[in-house]
Structures are given as structure tokens and as C-alpha cells.
Write a protein that binds this DNA or RNA. Structure first.
Lengths: 191, 191
DNA sequence: CCTCTCTAACCAACTGGATAGTTAGAAGAC
DNA sequence: GTCTTCTAACTATCCAGTTGGTTAGAGAGG
């Protein structure tokens, strides 16, 4: 590993910025802290990423692209998918927090992922196919089904308007939530 | 109306702070802007409210207390309640935005309303009663049902991780979402 | 009814530290 | 030798919180 490595420095800044913005958001995030955590300095940061806002957008887009696997969504096993999302949010708060900051500070209305290429077109196509096959109810718009499922799965996430789950709760509590979530999704959307 | 009116000044500051914090959050909110909007000055603001953080908590608590009517929640008409929440969030983004900022910046885990007195105990009691009467499923914890319903109703709110609804969309779109939401809630929780 | 006094309400201007963004140049790598 | 990577130090602005007062108006005394 060379002492000077532009790619590695970029990566350290990106990682530090991801943690900082997930924790504090765009307005609350501090460029000095990011540079310090990344073991570099602000001049490097500004050289590679332009400005704070751009860095935030890039962090969010990058995190979505690397952590939301394209084929993960499965309309044919929607209850299991929802339960999986519950577990993911529990184990990794970064995605939810970044997404919520992005929503509040960058994209207050419309498609949250518009800056990042929009909601995967495949999602809609696959829900439609599952509806045609009689697996999912065909009385709702595909995107409405998708929104509701995400809304349900994020009920206990770090964006929750009620109660946010933590890993140190008893496993029985998580099991009960997972079961309630899967049951509710099944009853609501599966035929 | 006297030229000097402490109550009126307090009220103007609270109103201005509510708008400012709903828009920009705690870190992004500016005390100077609040004072200017309230047509007063920072010294008054600090005299009445101590500091920015205290003011934020007070704004959030006050908004919840004045805008979340106690008896509004109705476990016997859960689908209609959910649809009502959809409409409320559509027409007034302030509550959702304040709550989401409070979640991210003040209460990252646990009960969001802990600072404000906790989730209404009546909510649990009334869900339990509805379960005992066979109106709601009794295979889920009351709080889990509550969380899921709020999660579903806020699927298109300004905290949405997918798509945020706006008032200027065609009424047919809103009607479809309301129907999907009510149907899903009914299928998931009502017996 | 007028004037004096006292207090609560008010405010312009200030302070000190934080913060986004810049500069000018040092040093490793090829 | 020169191009890229790196850095300490700098700048200009912003911002939460404070200071040192001024002013409106209520009530008391005459």
C-alpha cells in the first residue's frame, strides 16, 4: 500500500462522511470532523468532492447503490421480504438515517431516489407480474403496495414516528414484531 | 391590544420557531430567523425560552399536545382512522416533520414521545379492548398494531422512505392511496 | 388630573467560538 | 523534473448566546 493513494483517501473521506451524515445530517454534519475521522484535511476533501452538499448527495447515492441490492426485493415472498427489511434496519441504521435526512433536507416531496436514478423500474414490473399471477392483490397500484410494505417494515426503524427498535431488546420482542409484520403484509397483499 | 404583551410575544416566538424547526430541524434552524419572523429579537427569545434546544423540545411538545387530539385514535374504525391520518399528513406537514427531526436529532431510539409524556396509555388499553371484543386480531401486541398502522398511514408523508404525496396531485391519486391504505389496514388487523 | 417611581417588556449592538471553504507551498512517486 | 497527493495555516462569515441599556405603562402620592 503506497503512502500516497488518492483512491484510498477518497474512500476514507467517503466512509467518514457516511458516518458523520448518518449521525448528524447535512446541516448538523461537520466537515472538520469528517476530515479528521478520515485522517486527512479539508483541502483534500474539497479537492475530491467540491462542497458539503455535493458530498452529502454522493454519500447517499453511494450508500443506496452499494447497500440496496437490486434483486433483493421479492414480490413473490413479500412477508419474508418485509421481515428481512426489519432485520436489516435493526442491524444497520445508516441507510434509514441517511434516507430520512435526505428526505427532510434535500427532497421534501416526490420520489426520494429521484437524484439517485429513481425507484427501480423493475420493482413496479415485478409487482405487476405477481399481481397478474394472482400472488398479490390486483386492486392496488404497484407503487402503493411497495410504499405500504416499506412503511410497515420501517415501523420500528430509526425514522419511526412511534417506537424505534434496538438490538439490545430481547429476541422474543423482535420475533413478535417480525411475525406481526409478516402476518400483516400477508393478510394485506397476498392472495 | 397593548404595545407590550409578553404572552403575545411568547406566542409569536413559538409560532415562528415551529415553522423554522419544521422546515430546517434543530441543527439547521436559525435563532436569528426565528426572532426576525416573530418580529422580536434574540434577547427576548432567550429570556423566555432559555436556549435553542429547550425551545425545540418545547415546540415539539406543544405541537403534539395541541394538534394530536386525545380521542382521535379509534381502534374500532382503524381503516377510517388510517385514511384520516393520511389526509392529515397531506394537509399539515408540520407534525410529521417536527416528529422526524425530533426522532433523528433528539430521540434516536425508544419511544419518540418519551419527553412529551409517552405514547398515550389509552391507546394500548383501547386496542386491547377492541381485541377482546373480536374487532381486532388478538395475535399481535397492541403497540405493534399501533406502530404498523402509523407506519402505513405515514407511507406517503414527508418522512416517507419512498414517495411523498403533495396536495397538488390529482384527487383520484389520493383516493386510490386512501382506499389501498384502508383496505390493507382492514385486511391486516380487523376481524 | 398630573407627575414621579418602579418594574416588566423590549432591543441594537456586541462577543467569542465555530465553520465552510481557500491558499500557497511541501513532498512522494514515477 | 514534473505531476499528483498532501497539509498547515488562513480567511471571511456565520451563529448561539450576552450585555447594557431604553421604553411603556401601571400604580402611588400629591
Amino acid at each position: 500500500m503506497p503512502i500516497r493513494d488518492a483512491d484510498a483517501t477518497r474512500a476514507r473521506i467517503l466512509a467518514a462522511a457516511t458516518a458523520e451524515f448518518a449521525e448528524h445530517g447535512l446541516a448538523g454534519g461537520r466537515v472538520d470532523r469528517i476530515a479528521a475521522t478520515a485522517q486527512t484535511n479539508k483541502a483534500q476533501l474539497y479537492h475530491y468532492f467540491g462542497n458539503k452538499e455535493t458530498l452529502f448527495d454522493l454519500v447517499f447515492g453511494h450508500y443506496v447503490q452499494t447497500h440496496v441490492a437490486n434483486g433483493w426485493f421479492d414480490p413473490e415472498r413479500l412477508p419474508e421480504y418485509a421481515a428481512g427489511v426489519y432485520d436489516y434496519y435493526l442491524q444497520d441504521p445508516v441507510l434509514v438515517r441517511l434516507a430520512t435526512w435526505a428526505r427532510l433536507e434535500r427532497t421534501p416531496t416526490g420520489d426520494l431516489y429521484a437524484r439517485v436514478g429513481g425507484v427501480d423500474v423493475q420493482v413496479v414490473a415485478r409487482i405487476e407480474m405477481a399481481q397478474a399471477q394472482g400472488i398479490l392483490v390486483d386492486t392496488m397500484q404497484p407503487l402503493d403496495i411497495y410504499s405500504l410494505v416499506i412503511g410497515m417494515a420501517s415501523s420500528w426503524a430509526q425514522s419511526s414516528l412511534t417506537f424505534t427498535a434496538t438490538a439490545d431488546e430481547p429476541e422474543a420482542v423482535h420475533a413478535a414484531r417480525r411475525a406481526a409484520l409478516a402476518d400483516a403484509v400477508r393478510a394485506a397483499f397476498c392472495r
